[in-house]
Design a protein around this nucleic acid. Structure first.
Lengths: 136, 136
DNA sequence: AGTCAATTGTTGACTCGTCAAATGTAAAAC
DNA sequence: GTTTTACATTTGACGAGTCAACAATTGACT
């Protein structure tokens, strides 16, 4: 495996990422990162930012900024934990829940782009390969 | 395939991209994008920026800025095409060629991280899956 | 010629991530 | 009971990409 080949492979990953993220945003109206963030908060119900950080593995600074935007849009509410004023608790608003489920439903009707180029089993393959990469 | 699952998958791609790009840079000393750019110029010998753009599929603005940096580092030289003053011809300097081959050699000795988590056949799988994604 | 359109590259304003330094709070050490 | 130390979040400066507006050059049509 030459360095040249590795560079080509990794660059393909970069391109795929860009492609896929922008197409997700076009289809759903949510940025991929913020959608993921909302879903994580949704699953946890209420959580601190560092919990989000651990789940998403991106920088805390990015979390803060996304949440600020989501708050402005009225999708999340943030309150300092009264028992520990260091942390901020985040939870979804009803509006967010509503918009997310309606987005899901819209989506169910019009299959996502990715299912047009990859079969179910290929998606599973991809997922397990990515999992290995993300162990690095 | 639920939207939630798609979001998870795409987010994994994003994470893999970030991981892999930063590890490439740490190991080689070249940013992935600029390495790829240098190799493309290397392969073509001399080329215009729009040729690079087509090969790399990133915005022209990004190309301009990377080339500016590479020029400052003494890795490429740029001259307007005398036959068509709209385009700029780019070619590598000897310094770049030298540094690139020595980087390649260093690399051959210390296998790249990716080969530690993926087998040869997994890498091929991944590559073909990415190719399909990049058709979107 | 003289205008109009297409091509090539550059620049500015924006998004999204990083790291590092700063803030504010809690807990531990003395 | 201060003074460290650690933790959670925030902010600022930066890198890398996007898009849109602009400039310069070329080529084509009348």
């Amino acid at each position: 495996m030459e360095l040249r080949d590795i560079s080509r492979l990794l660059y393909q990953i970069k391109l795929a990422d860009q492609r896929v993220a922008t197409s997700f945003e076009k289809e759903t109206g949510f940025s991929l990162t913020r959608y993921e963030m909302l879903m994580i908060v949704h699953d946890k119900g209420v959580c601190s930012q560092s919990e989000i950080q651990q789940a998403m593995k991106i920088d805390n600074a990015a979390i803060t900024r996304h949440l600020k935007i989501l708050e402005e849009k009225g999708y999340v509410r943030r309150e300092r934990n009264t028992a520990n004023h260091r942390e901020v608790f985040v939870h979804l608003t009803d509006e967010a829940k509503h918009d997310l489920t309606s987005c899901e439903q819209d989506h169910d009707r019009s299959k996502h782009l990715i299912t047009k180029v990859l079969s179910e089993s290929e998606i599973n393959q991809l997922s397990s390969l990515l999992q290995k990469l993300n162990q690095l």
